[in-house]
């Protein structure tokens, strides 16, 4: 596993605006993950051509936060989704 993987949303996984509940949700095979603001922010930076570090850099700029502070959270979140096959992390 690469220390700085390329992050992709696999086919069959997509962000959806849940207009009834008024919140964003990640839809995947037989799953609907209600997203909080942080999870949503991370996933909106997944453009299928960025590495994890690039996503961290952009989020740090967006929220005026130190990269070191958010890198751990981003890594943990993406690894958890990878284990559930909701994101792909490639070398």
């Amino acid at each position: 596993m690469s220390a700085d993987p390329l992050v992709l949303l696999p086919r069959g996984v997509r962000l959806h605006d849940d207009r009834v509940r008024g919140r964003p949700v990640l839809l995947g095979p037989e799953r609907a993950l209600m997203l909080d603001d942080i999870a949503h922010a991370i996933l909106t930076e997944v453009d299928n051509c960025s590495r994890e570090s690039q996503i961290v850099t952009r989020l740090a700029a967006r929220f005026a936060a130190p990269e070191a502070e958010i890198a751990g959270d981003v890594h943990e979140f993406l690894s958890d989704l990878r284990d559930r096959r909701l994101v792909d992390l490639l070398p």
């Binding site: 959806h16 849940d18 009834v20 509940r21 949700v25 839809l27 037989e30 799953r31 609907a32």
Partner: peptide, 9 residues
Amino acid sequence: ADLGVLQLH
């Protein structure tokens, strides 16, 4: 969908 269903099987 109007009712709030997200997943259709």
